[in-house]
Amino acid sequence: MITIEHMTKRYGSLTAVDDLSFTAQSGRVTGFLGPNGAGKTTTLRMATGLIRPNAGQASFNGKHYLALDKPMRHVGLALEPAVFHPGRSALNHLLMLAPYAGVSRERCLEVLGLVGLSDVADKRVGKFSLGMRGRLNLAGALLGDPSILLLDEPVNGLDPEGIRWIRELLRTLANQGRTVLISSHLLSEVQQTVDDLVIIAHGRTVYQGTLEQLEATSGEQVGVVTSDVAGLTALARQLGWQIVASPGASEHPGQLVLAGVTINQIAATMTQAGIPIGGIAPMSNNLESIFLSLTEGQGGMR
């Protein structure tokens, strides 16, 4: 289990992570989501002592990272971007970490096989593709057979086959009772992989719960096109309708997506108020748009 409590990191005037708290349970895959710059990597760095938080703390099965004996045996972290010495071979990269994990050369070869890099074990990492670097990064995290895995954007650089492969791998690891946390800036990328979700924006939690709950709470959404967006916005605020996407955030100016209200109600109220209806239709309610509304509602990317 991973517990993040009230973590805060400031860079000058920017608060990259802002009083962030969440937990990730063992035996489950938790998606740690947020747009680029939301503070995911910073949180993982703070949790493992690479950078110093301004406030807050993290624990792994109840222990601070510094208190772990041979941390690689408890926590495997694969950060994005992956870092390697370009002149070192894949096997030598793992061998350099092996003494810390207390594992043998055989184990290094074994994890290389597990991530599908056996054929290039002796090739220098400088010649690796993005996908191969991602796999080697994962191999480093798996080396000490840890019960907690933190994978930062593990899907980046993988081809569709690779994505399917990592999905199955993560599922297997979680089924073995491990705590698996994967970060991503796209919900659709991990939607089929995760059980639980932690969604952050601007370093703050905007959603924590299961994937099903998120799907269930989303409700019906209605797209409205009008020449009087300001009028409709004011009306929606007044009546407590939820504005899911505002014109500035969407590529269709003059369009609002509303929730918490039926299509008939909207049409009737707009007619009554004299706001022209250019078009009105129920929206297909996919998760990605919920994700966007959750994170963009916070003001979008910085």
Binding site: L50, L66, P71, M72, V83, M96, Y100, A101
Partner: peptide, 18 residues
């Protein structure tokens, strides 16, 4: 210097935070 230049100090400090 090589560890800081190629950022391999990151996996090193993860493996041994002391």
């Amino acid at each position: 210097t090589a560890e800081y230049r190629h950022h391999t100090i990151v996996p090193t400090f993860l493996a041994q935070p002391r």
